[in-house]
């Protein structure tokens, strides 16, 4: 479960705030970075280090879209489909990704390389359409650009 290193990192984060509870979101990020998603077991460990009831940790985690409460593939593809991206063809981008990856929105490829989801505005409206893969923004998307990005990501070792 949560490594000793992660626990120590969370302890340290608690000291950054006047009230240690403020470190809960940063703590969940630490846990997610280590495990890829927040399983009930991992959240229980976070609760223990944070000295909070497990139900409270689970409740907070469930409020925020960036905490994965289910496993995701190595590359979490998040396509913005909000207004500015939508005006410039986000729906087509989603359809193209679906056909390229052979999965529907919300699904993961059988090799666990890619998960495809749609998300709300990511503040990249001047460079629409766009998607975020894990932490990286890819902007001004075209079919050719998506081909290149997917090829690069597929080659990258997990």
């Amino acid at each position: 479960m949560l490594s000793e290193n992660a626990k120590a990192e969370i302890e340290q984060l608690k000291g950054k705030y006047p009230d240690p509870k403020s470190a809960l979101l940063p703590a969940l990020y630490v846990a997610q970075r280590e495990h890829g998603w927040l399983s009930p077991e991992v959240m229980r460990d976070v609760a223990e280090v944070m000295d909070l009831p497990p139900a409270e940790v689970a409740s907070v985690a469930s409020f925020y879209t960036m905490f994965n409460r289910q496993p995701v593939g190595e590359n979490l593809i998040q396509v913005c489909t909000n207004i500015s991206c939508s005006l410039l063809g986000a729906e087509h981008i989603v359809e193209y990704l679906k056909s390229k990856l052979g999965i529907d929105v919300g699904e993961t490829t059988p090799d666990n390389k890619f998960t495809l989801v749609t998300v709300e505005c990511l503040g990249s409206c001047g460079t629409a359409p766009m998607m975020q893969v894990n932490d990286t923004y890819y902007e001004n998307l075209t079919e050719e650009k998506i081909d290149r990005i997917l090829a690069e990501l597929a080659e990258r070792k997990g």
Partner: peptide, 20 residues
């Protein structure tokens, strides 16, 4: 961690305190 309503100032503060 992904929530539009946290841009509202009291929502932001509750989030910064480690809550929903």
């Amino acid at each position: 961690a992904g929530s539009y309503v946290c841009g509202e100032e009291t929502g932001l503060l509750t989030s910064l305190e480690g809550d929903r």
